[in-house]
Design a protein around this nucleic acid. Structure first.
Length: 578
DNA sequence: GCCGTTTTCGGCCCGACTGTTTTCAGTCG
């Protein structure tokens, strides 16, 4: 793992321990912010640390954190963190993730009931120590126990590939309730994050009670966590939490903005409002008259509230698409004109029954035609991918003939004969150049040796993108979200080589991969490299993964102009032949 | 701990809901 990733988890741990120790919440938030900055950092951290003042010039990093980072670079530890680790049991930190337990309660459990981890918390519940504490009623304890049991059997975050279809079906169900005017999802799902914590739904209706009842009485609800006039929270069988808020129609934009987040974007917006003599909450943007009582409770009319765009405009800020509302996105700079799914006109990475796909060449072509594409590349695995039925030289030659034959029979679409060629650990390719030259399109991919050192990975991938016959480096790191981290090449070096040699970098749209990831896309674009978004389809339904790739591109600031898939058929052919 | 067209000190987003309380602390998003 890279220095900054390791250090980010150290700062995250520092923040958690400070919380349990009862330290000032703003300090904790500041430390946590540094963890995020480190998480997002791309480049050579030690080089930056060695340059006087460079760390301090990063947003959110001050003198104290800079000194901790340098300390860690020098001797691998942070004194303050070591001290806290010595004082506070490590087992308390995971308790912060148990729903309903916050820093105050965890601190109390530790100091007043000798709780040090999950197991001792259960023991304290069993032997009645918890019930003996003030403000620890039967319901509170039952909720803690329930959360403990839930946490024990479910993953903490859900892939966007699972959450988005779920949100679509929930929203459809709720839209059918009498009186409902509108239902939309917000939160990290709307921002297109690769994993999401829970599904946030926002609704307008003339009959809130009816809507709340529809959600809380769904057959797949396993627990109702909260249920009020304007808010309900439930847990579904699928192990995911759904929050539903009902808002007034006139306040929908303010509410959507608020519940979409990110938290940091909201804070920045509210700050912007404050400096302009205004006050922003989920009911609208109001003139700040200094009165503590919320303006909407005093019958004040908002300056803006109906749409998100109204609010940005009233703040004199450019509108930000949800995908560009993260902590690292600037509030003042006008966002680029992001690519849309409608801009996508081809899929350049797909598989057939020749290797490990489920459909024939002709069936794949039909799926692509149904999606309005002008071109489809058939790119089965190369010989080293034995487990995937990779093609040896002879089979590939006959596969090329098969693709050309089907292509000749179709007028609606152009089929490209391609291959997804393994990049060996040392950077060599799985086929000879003579054979690669016979293909219309050549993809290179790392499939094995995904734990090699960053240095070796960089060498390997730079060799691939520098090869004159390679058009695209696909799923460049080989990561699988939540399962394996994949390669950690020097992205600066990789995107620079890709830009220099005119090789495109893929955003693999499979929601388990999303590789390149959003921040790498940003880097690639800054270096002038081309991006392509492909589904890696092995079956008909996989063509629909495209939207996850598009949203990842959008999070990286991708425009149609920089994306190969938005080219016309002739532009694409020119690019392939260059 | 961080930051500055209010500020180098004194703030730091703000409201809903729950549970345990007779007015509010803690958590969550």
């Amino acid at each position: 793992m890279s220095d900054q990733r390791v250090l980010a988890t150290e700062f995250e741990m520092l923040a958690a321990l400070m919380e349990v120790a009862g330290q000032n919440a703003f300090k904790v938030a500041a430390v946590r912010r540094v963890a995020r900055v480190l998480e997002d950092f791309e480049g050579d951290l030690r080089a930056v640390a060695a340059e006087p003042g460079a760390l301090e010039s990063m947003d959110g990093v001050g003198k104290s954190s800079a000194s901790k980072i340098r300390q860690w670079c020098d001797d691998g530890t942070i004194a303050e963190l070591d001290t806290l680790r010595g004082e506070i049991p490590a087992g308390l930190v995971p308790l912060l993730d148990v729903s309903g337990l916050g820093p105050k309660t965890v601190g109390r459990l530790w100091r007043e009931a000798d709780v040090t981890d999950h197991a001792s918390l259960r023991a304290a519940i069993d032997d009645g120590r918890l019930a003996a504490l003030p403000r620890m009623g039967a319901k509170t304890i039952a909720n803690i126990l329930d959360s403990l049991n839930f946490a024990a059997q479910s993953a903490d975050r859900t892939s966007i590939g699972r959450a988005l279809p779920m949100a679509e079906s929930l929203a459809e169900d709720l839209r059918s309730v009498d009186g409902v005017h509108r239902v939309e999802w917000a939160g990290s799902l709307r921002r297109g994050c690769e994993t999401i914590g829970d599904i946030d739904l926002l609704a307008t209706t003339s009959e809130p009670a009816r809507l709340m009842e529809r959600l809380t009485r769904r057959p797949d609800v396993t627990k109702v966590l909260a249920s009020g006039d304007t808010k309900a929270s439930v847990r579904l069988e699928a192990g995911i939490q759904v929050d539903l808020r009902v808002v007034d129609r006139e306040a929908f934009g303010a509410a959507l903005l608020y519940f979409t987040g990110s938290k940091e974007h909201n804070v920045a917006l509210r700050h912007a409002a404050n400096t302009r003599g205004m006050r922003l909450n989920e009911y609208g943007l109001f003139k700040d008259d200094g009165d503590e009582t919320p303006p909407q409770d005093r019958g004040m009319s908002p300056l803006a509230s109906v749409t998100e765009a109204d609010i940005y405009q009233a703040l004199d800020l450019p509108w930000h698409p949800p995908e560009l509302r993260e902590s690292h996105d600037s509030l003042d700079a006008a966002p680029p004109d992001l690519i849309d799914q409608g801009d996508i006109r081809c899929d350049l990475h797909t598989h057939t029954t020749a290797s490990d796909g489920h459909l024939s060449i002709a069936d794949m072509a039909r799926e692509a035609i149904a999606r309005g594409y002008h071109t489809l590349a058939i790119t089965d695995h190369s010989k080293s991918s034995v487990q995937a039925g990779g093609l040896d030289e002879q089979r590939l030659r006959s596969h090329i003939d098969d693709i050309r034959a089907v292509d000749a029979s179709l007028s609606e679409i152009r089929l490209l004969a391609g291959a997804e060629v393994d990049i060996h650990a040392d950077g060599r390719l799985d086929y000879d150049d003579d054979l690669l030259a016979e293909l219309d399109i050549v993809l290179a991919a790392p499939h094995v040796s995904l734990r090699q050192s960053p240095k070796d990975a960089t060498k390997r991938l730079v060799a691939a993108v520098s090869h004159p016959l390679i058009h695209i480096l696909v799923h460049p790191t080989g990561r699988i979200i939540g399962r394996r981290p994949g390669l950690e090449p020097d992205m600066d070096a990789l995107v620079a080589a890709a830009a220099e040699h005119g090789t495109a970098l893929e955003i693999n749209a499979n929601p388990q991969r999303l590789d390149l990831r959003d921040r790498h896309v940003r880097k690639a674009l800054a270096a002038g490299a081309r991006i392509t978004i492909n589904t890696d389809a092995h079956a008909a339904a996989h063509f629909d993964f495209m939207r996850y790739g598009v949203v990842t591109g959008r999070r990286g600031g991708l425009t149609a102009k920089s994306c190969i898939n938005a080219y016309s058929a002739s532009e694409l052919m020119d690019w392939l032949d260059r």
